[in-house]
Nucleic acid binder design. Sequence first.
DNA 1: ATTGGCACTCATGGCCAGTGAGTGCTAAAG
DNA 2: CTTTAGCACTCACTGGCCATGAGTGCCAAT
Lengths: 353, 353
Amino acid sequence: MVPLAPKGLREREILTAIIDTYIATGEPVGSRTLSRTNKNGLSPATIRNVMSDLADSGFLDQPHTSAGRIPTAEAYRYYVAQITGTARLSPADEEMISSSFQGVGDVDEFLERTSHVLSLVSSGVGVAVAIGGSKTTLDHVYFSRLSVQKVLAVVVTGAGVVRDRVLRLPRDFSQDELDTAARFINENFRGWAMDELKSEIARRIDQERSEFDFLMESIAQLYRGGALAADEPSQAVFVEGVANLVASERGGSDLDKARLGEMLRTLEEKQRLIELLSAYLDARQETVRVVIGLEDTVPQMRNFVLIGVPARVGGEVMGSLAVIGPTRMDYEHTITAVSYIARLFDQVLNENA
Amino acid sequence: MVPLAPKGLREREILTAIIDTYIATGEPVGSRTLSRTNKNGLSPATIRNVMSDLADSGFLDQPHTSAGRIPTAEAYRYYVAQITGTARLSPADEEMISSSFQGVGDVDEFLERTSHVLSLVSSGVGVAVAIGGSKTTLDHVYFSRLSVQKVLAVVVTGAGVVRDRVLRLPRDFSQDELDTAARFINENFRGWAMDELKSEIARRIDQERSEFDFLMESIAQLYRGGALAADEPSQAVFVEGVANLVASERGGSDLDKARLGEMLRTLEEKQRLIELLSAYLDARQETVRVVIGLEDTVPQMRNFVLIGVPARVGGEVMGSLAVIGPTRMDYEHTITAVSYIARLFDQVLNENA
DNA sequence: ATTGGCACTCATGGCCAGTGAGTGCTAAAG
DNA sequence: CTTTAGCACTCACTGGCCATGAGTGCCAAT
């Protein structure tokens, strides 16, 4: 899984130089320009030789015979692997970012702003998803009678996230009954993981079906009505900065209309984004991950990369945040920004919980 | 405010025909094509004369001297004014739309789907905003102690909308204190309009400041902490279908890159959208409004129209829903769709409340 | 009032060099 | 063996030129 690297020192230097200038200019880079730009005074011919080798080993491509070279996915992988990761954001950036999170209350709000901030500091699209993961724990529930057979269920999770849902139940409940049921759940299950909780309740309902326990019957009804599934539609997805995809100025991606349309459509399929992020961002991984070659999973995303990290608060994964941007982007800057925000996420929300 | 209309019957017929074919083809329509397409067998020359008149009275424009004519904003205004409004959606559309709202629980969820559905049935962008208007009433509040000096406030409004907010308070409260405060508010203020409620509480706090009432002090703290402002950030904005802006096939808008970027950026400024909708959609108006000439307010939106209506449930305005699309769109269809969804909104959510 | 005819305008698309950045290869120089 | 200079060749891109065709405006005839 370690990315390949060119063998010689010279080759590596030149490859890096090519990628740098390609990222900067967006045009295929040729031997002459490179020889002029680069400090070490190599002649175009030499560079051509090296380039030829690099092309053979699969690091460079040419769009057509008589054009310059373009880095391949493999080249980008080498390029990001070689980034030290010790870079810091500029104070101005840090200031801008952290002030953007002034006064956020909950996870969703934070993630929403995250997608915005990410789109500002990168040349890509900012994406943040909240996953009401199975490891979410229950803090408590409320039930509130809205009208005949309509009940509002509010679930507060251990992390202080609130989800609500309106239930339509087969029979009417009084507020007293609802309170009793809520008290029962709160007293017995506070701190449980949601999925364990759900299976435990399902088990008890099953078991005590015969003896007609009034309380259990209420709970069964509420449960079947989806009271606890209230954590499920918590898959909030925030996408911002799609305007970066068109970016006429500064090194934006240069998509044609058709591809642009596909991208926009894909970015609106929230379910798809959730899958994409969860496929690539392992909950256990601590550091920012850079995925090059997104087209393997999502063909529409040819020439796009994902730079993301799970969003944790106090060790618990609450979602993930990422930038989806053109292969041609400032990797180091984006990586540091993503990592900085992830750290901020932990800090700010820990303080809240 | 009544839109101008061409004087003669013939002129009106031809204008309508021109707009129809322009909407269909997207290209300036000339006299010859029109004479061929149109059933009434008028010669190109005649049509030219009429067109010339229409151009003089400001209904037609020519992009350049030797091209066909395109309708002006004034022409579109006439065109939509002349739509009867009696059209019905196709059964398939109705089915598709209403099934899209299967199982929605609350206003936000409905509005989110609305933006999606609108983008599907129109060739524009679906926009829906929730406005926690001042007429919102209080059903009840919950307070829940999260940790030291951190309290979760949940406000349930009369319409069954739930808003939550994490408060940081100057001193710690026990859950008992919180319960007492919540009970007090619920018993005294259920059914009040949020803004009246807020000023009443502010008044009482002011009044009873001297005598140190413990309960009132708690409530004051909670109030200042923003417990009741929980309805304020309720300005959810849902935008979907931006891919329609690029729409390579079928009569989509044909923006160049620069304009597209501006549009995308503008559509992401949620505050702006809220202003835009509230500027044009009067809470009192019952019917769908079509605003042609959006560029007067938002220059980036040249050649875009807004088709929207306030979203009511049982007479109370909960937000608004709209399509922002190119002037070249199927007005009748979009209008009926918007109106249909608005009706659905009332139905589905009334049933919930 | 309507129409046919005619001269004129322009955007569009194809064709055709000229330009220039870039390549590969070979032979000479270090 | 590495580096460099030189050279022939490729090929996208640009700008000029011309033909095409849809469209207009106007005038005279019906």
